[in-house]
């Protein structure tokens, strides 16, 4: 099977301090660490598992600046055969739609049986690149995919709905699968594989290759801090004092 995986390099913000930059439209990025988007690791693993079963190739594609190549090399080390970077720096006003449109411009010249994307990127959370890409390519799609098994040219696909209910579908290929986290156990790349991947060529595609004008759907006007909600009463003091306060609150509620 020939498979494509769309990978985004994203800032890791769950534990970091996030600040608005001078433009007001982006966050200060220089002190953040970056990694493969969480769901994309699962998307990549899903492709690797199919390749191990059926043979074929995996092409990893990322729209990003030069540092996205580090993330693509991780994909190469884990099991992708080819990697393509679309030069984000050459395309203005990217949104989910334009991202999908650019990916399509590259993918339309590649034969594929399935495309794997994440269901959502943790930075912008648009939940849309996978299904929009499918629509632009004229193939079927499923989102929030929690299982893909291929037999006799058909895919048995599970989607995870609210409350953990599963929707089981049968789909024909080619198709786009936007996968949910937790669907497999993403492997680690071995040191040898990482070293080998360091020497592999990454195809870089820019304005010269994609000359048509693609429109975007939306413009980000500006970032602002979310309004503080009811805001917790923060218990202060030493660890011991805090613990005493918390235990007292729990006791007063009659819970111990």
């Amino acid at each position: 099977m020939d498979l494509i995986v769309c990978i985004k390099r994203v800032p890791q913000t769950a534990e970091a301090e996030v600040k608005i930059d001078a433009s007001g439209k982006d966050i200060v990025r220089d002190r953040l660490t970056f990694d493969m988007n969480e769901a994309d690791s699962y998307a990549l693993e899903a492709a690797i598992l199919l390749k191990e079963k059926f043979g074929g190739t995996i092409t990893a594609i990322s729209l990003g600046t030069a540092d996205a190549e580090d993330t693509l090399r991780i994909a190469l080390a884990k099991g992708a055969d080819n990697a393509i970077r679309i030069k984000a720096e050459e395309f203005a006003q990217l949104d989910g739609f334009k991202t999908a449109a650019l990916l399509k411009e590259v993918i339309k010249d590649i034969t594929f049986d399935a495309i794997f994307t994440g269901c959502m990127a943790t930075d912008d959370s648009y939940y849309q690149v996978g299904p929009v890409l499918a629509e632009l390519l004229g193939v079927g799609h499923a989102t929030l995919v929690s299982k893909v098994e291929v037999a006799d040219g058909k895919a048995q696909v599970n989607r995870e709905l609210e409350g953990g209910l599963i929707e089981h579908l049968e789909m024909s290929l080619p198709a786009v699968f936007a996968v949910q986290t937790g669907i497999n156990e993403p492997r680690y790349a071995s040191l040898i594989a990482i070293r080998r991947a360091a020497g592999k060529e990454i195809r870089v595609v820019g304005r010269e290759e994609i000359s048509i004008e693609l429109k975007s759907n939306s413009t980000l006007e500006g970032l602002f801090l979310p309004p503080v909600g009811k805001r917790a009463e923060i218990l202060s003091g030493s660890t011991d004092e805090i613990s005493t306060k918390a235990a007292t609150i729990i006791k007063e509620k009659g819970l111990i």
């Binding site: 949104d95 989910g96 739609f97 999908a100 269901c119 959370s125 648009y126 939940y127 849309q128 299904p131 929009v132 499918a134 629509e135 632009l136 799609h141 499923a142 989102t143 929030l144 989607r159 995870e160 709905l161 609210e162 929707e167 759907n217 939306s218």
Partner: peptide, 24 residues
């Protein structure tokens, strides 16, 4: 709705119709 139901068809529907859209 930006739910398992909605995100399975809304982005592709808007794309098919050629309408601007956004999610969540």
């Amino acid at each position: 709705g930006n739910t398992a139901f909605g995100i399975d068809f809304a982005p592709s529907l808007a794309t098919q119709l050629g309408f601007p859209f956004t999610t969540d």
